[in-house]
Every structure is written in C-alpha cells, then in structure tokens.
Design a protein around this nucleic acid. Sequence first.
DNA 1: CGGCAAGTTGAGCCAGGTCAACTCCGGTGG
DNA 2: CCACCGGAGTTGACCTGGCTCAACTTGCCG
Lengths: 254, 254
Amino acid sequence: MNARTTSKCLQCSIQTDPGGFCQHLTDVQHDELTAQSRQTSLRRDGTISGEELLIWPIIAVQSGVLSLQHLLEDGRKTIVALFMQGEIIDMRGLARRHHGHLIALGKTTICRMSPVGFEAAIDNNLDAQKVAWTGLRNQTYRAMDHAADLAKKQALEKLASFVFECRNRQAGRKSTNKVHIPVRRIDLADYLGMQPETVSRCFKEMQTRKIIAFENISNLMILDIPTLRRIANGDKHTEKLRHTDKNHFEAANS
Amino acid sequence: MNARTTSKCLQCSIQTDPGGFCQHLTDVQHDELTAQSRQTSLRRDGTISGEELLIWPIIAVQSGVLSLQHLLEDGRKTIVALFMQGEIIDMRGLARRHHGHLIALGKTTICRMSPVGFEAAIDNNLDAQKVAWTGLRNQTYRAMDHAADLAKKQALEKLASFVFECRNRQAGRKSTNKVHIPVRRIDLADYLGMQPETVSRCFKEMQTRKIIAFENISNLMILDIPTLRRIANGDKHTEKLRHTDKNHFEAANS
DNA sequence: CGGCAAGTTGAGCCAGGTCAACTCCGGTGG
DNA sequence: CCACCGGAGTTGACCTGGCTCAACTTGCCG
C-alpha cells in the first residue's frame, strides 16, 4: 500500500481534483513527497508564522481560503491575494524580505510540502513541472488582473469583477449563474481596497438594479450577466443607466 | 563560432548581465534557442499585437521598459505591470483570454523567443529552469506588492513605494540615493492608478518637505530615506507631520 | 435567550479626480 | 538661428466618490 492510497491523501483535493498537482506524480514520487509533508488545519485567523514559512515555504491549499495579508504601519490591512482549493503557494525567498502573512479566512486545511521533496518531484517529472509552472503563471496573471481592478476601477466595477473572479475560480467550473462568495464582507473589502460599508452599498445597488440576487449572505445568482460584465469592464455608459423596465432604460442623471 | 559569440547576442543584457537567463544555457542550447529567436526594437507606443503573441508568447526585455496595459471600455487605461531589462515575459495562454497589450514606453529592444526552444532549454537544464522559475516568482511577488500599493495606500504613499520599487529594480543594484525613474509621468500615473496632476502634486510635496530632490525630470535623489520609507509603509503619523526644521516637527493640522 | 461580531444604513467630509489655463521643452522647418 | 508647434508637465479651482463615524439590525454561537 503506497502513499497514494494512504488515508491522509485519500480525500485531498490536490490528489483528487482534476488537474491537481499530485495526480501528476508517480507513486514513488508521491510517496517521497508525502513522507516529507505535513497536513494541518487552520481556523479563521489562523496564521502561518514567518518561522514556519522558512521551514515549510511551500503550501498546498486542500480546502478553504488562505489570504496573503499586508499590514501598513498605521494598521490599515490589505489582502493581497486569495488562495483557494488546489493552489500551491511557493513562498521560497519571500518570507525574509516581505512583511506579508498567510492567514486563513475560515476553516482551512493545508498541506505543507517539503521544498526538497517538491523540488525533487518537479526536477524529475516534466508533467508535474508544467502543472506547477502553469499554476504559478496563473497566480501571476491573477495578481495582475487584480492590480488592474484596483488601479482605475470604481467600487461597483471592482465588485462586479470580483463576482466574475469567484465564478471563474469556483470548483465546479460550470458556467452557472450561481456564484459562491467564499469570504466575509470585511475580507472582501480588504481585498478590493475598499470599506465594508461601500461593499454593502454596492451589493445593494446591484440588487436594486436586478443584476444579482442573494440567496443567502454568501451565495448569489447573477440575473443579468451582460450588464454585470459591462460594469466589470468599466463601461461607464452602462453604469450610468438605471434599469427601470425590462426594455426601458434612462440616464440616471437626466 | 557558436551563437554565444554571435553578434546579435554579444551585447544582449540577457546574456551579459549577472543572473541573465541565457548565461545558464549550454552553448548548444543557446545556439538552438538563438536560431529560433528574433530580436526587434520598438519605439514609444510600439505594440506587440495579439497575433504576434500567439506565435511568440515569450519575450525577453533586452533594454528599455515594456508595459502590460489594460483598457477599460470607456477608455480608462491602466498599466498593469512594468517589465524591465533582463525580464522574461511568458504570455503563453494569456493572449487568448486577456484583453491586455504589451506596449513599449520608450525605445525598447526585445528578443522574441520560440516557446519550443525555450521549453527545450528549460526541460534539459535544471539551472536555467530555476532561473526562469525564480524570475516568474518575482513577477508574481511584484504584482502582489503592486496590488498592495494600489489597494489601500494614498497617493503620496504609492509614489514613495514606487521610488523604492525603482531603486530595487534598477540595474546597478547598488544601494545608492540616486534613483532613475524610467517612465513618463503619464505612464507613472496609469501604473499607480492616479492622475498625472496628482503625481505632480505629490512629487512636489516630497520636494518641499526635502525628502527627495530632482536632478532632472527622470532622475532624483532621496534626501531622507527613513522618512520616505515610513511614508511608503503607510505610517500616517509621519505623513501628517510637516518638516519645518531639522529637529522640529509639528502636526500639520494643529 | 443574551452577547458579540458582522453587516447595513445614514450623514457629513475630504483626498484626489476633473477641467481649464498655463509653462516648459524638444523637435522641425524656414 | 529663431519661430513655431505639440505634447508633457504643472498649477489652480472646483466637485464628487467613497471614506469616516455613529447608530442600528442581523445572525451566529454558547
């Protein structure tokens, strides 16, 4: 019985989800990596300390949401990035220069991978290497897209973008209208560089305009995808319109 | 005479700068990659079209500054990332889904690398592979740091951060007080998500407060590194102070 | 069922966006 | 060599989106 069928990996999403990193390892590689890895779980606000990161700089998210947070000296908090199920975070070299912290935004299970084991697996397995490379590249793109959102978009536009980001990232990639928001409003505000009050107001506006509808606090339904898309893409014209009737729009300011 | 001494690579920074990617290739690998690559130069606003990116998605910046720009539907422009000398941009997979464009911010020389050649070199050369991996990881970190700047920082703080970013990235990594700003004010504004007017005002405030001094439009000198650092890190207390005398501060609002 | 944190709503204010006028500077042609 | 031009940068005056602060509501958990 090899590690692939070992209990601690049996239900791990890195192993079972399509495209998961561990799927691409041979049994031997998987055994070796598993032997050098540790699974843990974190509750909300659980933090991975800098010292831990020096020893275990590579972390795979099995479930839940991890955030990379950045604290300004006067206490302002920013969530720089969100890491979700299946993602591998490579913090090698980051820990020493960066004043960011990995913090769980809810119950989260992670697998700390040994850098040596990870490196060994990657060096000898082109397939796994490509998966890891693509994963990292996606993180880069995501960070850049996020930067684009933050730079010039208005609050409503950022929120619309975020809804699509959640839709794209959610596990069952089915193009459904239902979107799960995996973070609290407060965290969402810190991620989008705005205030929780503003998040609330913008969500409300989208509801009033019948663009989205909330099933409950963390699950919504997109009612009008084209409009939401236009808002997310910064089409000021659309944004200035108020939905008054199914086929009748009028400029809000006139 | 192999490609390493071929004229077109002789002066290339990817080859000559310390840590440059091509240094880590064997002569044979370098020959093969060179044979499949094309050097070009761009002038300001020179754009690499989407079709070109599909064929040549991997680009090394030999000199100058390339920007990744994102256009909102109503014309607002954001510079999502800056790529400088020595960086390798891997746009594989990005071109089709992303509405971003690579645009030169001045005279820029680039080397379009064949993805096949690049991949081959990386697959068979652990050393080069690690250099590429580290480069990509740095881009990720940089994008995340940038996102942190954009999210919660005020204009003055963003600008202070940017000065340090330039200092860290500039070629001779010597910790000098002189910093070269490699982009125009307008581009700087688009990168930091603010207006050129605001950039101007904030630079002026820093000058008035004797924190920096401009030698000319694109070269400045940091006069007070600790204060600039505190501003960049979002220390509101420092920021609210006005420098009235070397040893005498007073709150601006009182 | 009480207590606390998260979320929402309202009122007022300010950092920075917007618009317009002006200056500066490098390039170009006569 | 100078006059001219156009784009970049700067300055000033004004305005607004979203931050702030405070009060209130909701919902979760013991």
